[in-house]
């Protein structure tokens, strides 16, 4: 076997191995999307109920709650970034990080300090690489978000929100995550979590809904006190679930094109190796013919 032919065969083999792996990852992601979507759907009743309740309290009671009132000046803002733990998902994590970069520029333009909370190993390694500081990070389990993690994140950011500015507290919280639009489309979404804007909250319940005049037990302020952390937690959990579903979809898409590319490589290299093999055979034939010719011509001269 010629040297050229051997090189092509090696390349075909390595492309085939890669294809097997990417194909397997594609199938795994495909099966996990369905599960992730089910989780999003399962969490929807809770989110709806909480949003509705918060909107109702906020609409019918004129209470000044620290979580709903916009401070006169906002000097520091927090951004919570939701990325994935693992790569090989196309632009999934970098989209979110780019969006965070844009938001940071905007906030700094408004004269605000920006602090970060990171979710997912990709965000952490990106920040390490750029030597940026984050207040806190959570890694592990981005593809299967747990309620407990959401609660932990919610508690941590709320703690920072309530703290005084001089102690490192902030007056604004933004979430950035990948929103699952469809199997093919996932968009980075930025929402301002706090201070609450009720307009944003009501868009999720049907616009035609009119809230009944609730009686509050024990009273409106206490109800709002108890509801808001739950609402924040629910928003964060939703963001995590959306991000997880998007991650699987993005990975499936990325792995599908990787598999297609490997297939294309295999095809090209097969053609090249066939050509090399033919060239080798042609050369051998011409060598034999040449040799026979030479023998015949020396025989003639005798």
């Amino acid at each position: 076997m010629g040297a050229q032919l051997r090189v092509y065969r090696q390349k075909i083999k390595s492309a085939q191995t890669t294809k097997k792996i990417t194909r397997a990852m594609e199938l795994i992601s495909a099966s996990r999307i369905a599960k992730a979507q089910q989780r999003v759907a399962a969490a929807t009743p809770h989110t709806k109920a909480v949003t509705r309740a918060v909107s109702a309290v906020a609409t019918y009671s004129n209470i000044d709650h620290p979580l709903t009132t916009e401070p006169a000046t906002i000097d520091r803002a927090a951004i919570v970034i939701f990325t994935s733990d693992r790569g090989l998902a196309g632009a999934f994590s970098s989209n979110v990080l780019k969006e965070a970069e844009r938001l940071t520029a905007l906030l700094q333009q408004q004269g605000k300090d920006v602090v970060y909370y990171l979710v997912g190993r990709k965000a952490v390694s990106n920040f390490n690489f750029r030597r940026r500081d984050s207040v806190r990070s959570w890694i592990g389990g981005t593809d299967l978000p747990q309620v407990e993690t959401a609660k932990e994140i919610a508690d941590t950011v709320l703690e920072g929100y309530i703290k005084e500015f001089t102690e490192g507290g902030f007056d604004e919280i933004h979430l950035i995550y990948n929103k699952f639009v469809s199997m093919m489309v996932q968009e980075p979404e930025v929402i301002r979590l706090l201070p609450l804007s009720i307009v944003e909250a009501t868009t999720e319940t049907a616009a035609a809904d009119v809230y009944p005049l609730y009686e509050f037990e024990p009273d409106a302020t206490k109800v709002l006190d108890a509801l808001l952390p739950v609402y924040i937690e629910s928003r964060i959990f939703t963001a995590m679930l959306q991000s997880a579903a998007s991650e699987h979809a993005a990975r499936q898409k990325a792995m599908k094109s990787a598999t297609d590319n490997a297939q294309k490589l295999i095809l090209n290299y097969t053609r090249l190796s066939n050509q090399a093999r033919q060239a080798e055979i042609t050369q051998q034939i011409s060598e034999i013919v040449g040799g026979a010719d030479a023998l015949a011509s020396t025989g003639d001269e005798d």
Partner: peptide, 13 residues
């Protein structure tokens, strides 16, 4: 608290 049908709207913790 006990809730029967036609209770007034209420939000309780």
């Amino acid at each position: 608290i006990g809730l029967l049908p036609d209770h007034e709207p209420i939000l309780a913790i």
